[in-house]
């Protein structure tokens, strides 16, 4: 589903190469995890895939179901089925959470030549999904992420994912800033979305999120490359021994 080949990326502002030939393939129905030390390029990978400005792709490719992601505008990538759950969800004062989600969903449907959802149908759908994530009406009515706690922001990301029903979900350190209960809630939300047609790429520092969202494949990223790939046991190895052993082994 998501195919990344030899991806090379520089920072636009300074002469610095962040990704140095990333190869990664995520199949439909699978959960892949990327772990790695700070500065290894994990978040950059998520930003480049979603189309954030400030990066220059100097080589390689990234496709979603065969479509070239790197040629598309961010909104086209979203309509094509790519979703990034932000590490730091953005606060947008003045834009209601519901308005935001409905505008996003209908823009995506329109881009795919699908019929737009009526306000009433949308409301019903969101309320159902919000309930399972313990998001109350007040949070739905408030401006996007404004005054939300860290946990509420992350739950709101997962709600958007549930509403937009993307094909390929990237979770960028969704566990950061979450206590155990909040993490469980978020993980339950993600697990509810796991199905045959959907791929996940879970970026995290720690094993603990992967206790709740069980990965099929674990990659270790270091210095802009995937340096090791394995099963869930690889995450446990990191948890027990840190990155140093693995990095020494592949050096």
């Amino acid at each position: 589903m998501l195919e990344i080949k030899g991806l090379n990326v520089d920072l636009e502002e300074e002469e610095k190469t962040i990704l140095k030939g990333v190869d990664l393939s995520v199949e439909a129905g699978k959960v892949h995890a990327i772990m790695g030390p700070n500065g290894s390029g994990k978040s950059t990978l998520s930003y480049v895939l979603s189309g954030r400005e400030g990066y220059e792709v100097t080589g390689g490719s990234a496709t979603l179901d065969g479509e070239d992601l790197l040629e598309m505008e961010p909104e086209e990538r979203a309509a094509a089925g790519l979703f990034l759950a932000f590490q730091y969800p953005v606060e947008i004062p003045g834009v209601g959470n519901m308005t935001f989600m409905r505008t996003a969903l209908n823009a995506q449907r329109k881009a795919r030549d699908e019929e737009e959802l009526s306000a009433a149908d949308f409301l019903k759908m969101v309320r159902e999904k919000a309930k399972t994530l313990k998001i109350d009406n007040d949070m739905l009515k408030r401006p996007v992420n404004v005054g939300f706690s860290g946990g509420e922001k992350k739950r709101n990301e997962i709600l958007q994912m549930a509403v937009l029903e993307p094909k390929m979900c990237i979770l960028d350190e969704t566990d950061s800033g979450l206590d155990v209960d909040a993490m469980k809630l978020v993980a339950d939300g993600v697990n509810a979305l796991r199905d045959q047609g959907r791929g996940f790429l879970v970026i995290t520092h720690y094993q603990r999120l992967l206790d709740h969202i069980k990965p099929d494949v674990v990659h270790i990223m270091a210095d802009g490359r995937i340096v090791k790939t394995g099963g869930p046991e690889l995450a446990l190895e990191v948890e027990n021994n840190g990155y140093a052993d693995i990095l020494a082994e592949v050096a």
Binding site: S50, E73, A78, T103, L105, V144
Partner: peptide, 26 residues
């Protein structure tokens, strides 16, 4: 930042501009 967040959710640039315009006037 807000613009990218909106676009990453599928809202085209022009619509995102209008949403942020309305938010500014709110």
């Amino acid at each position: 930042e807000a613009m990218f967040y909106l676009r990453a959710r599928g809202v085209p640039h022009a619509i995102a501009t209008d949403l942020l315009t309305l938010a500014f006037l709110a």
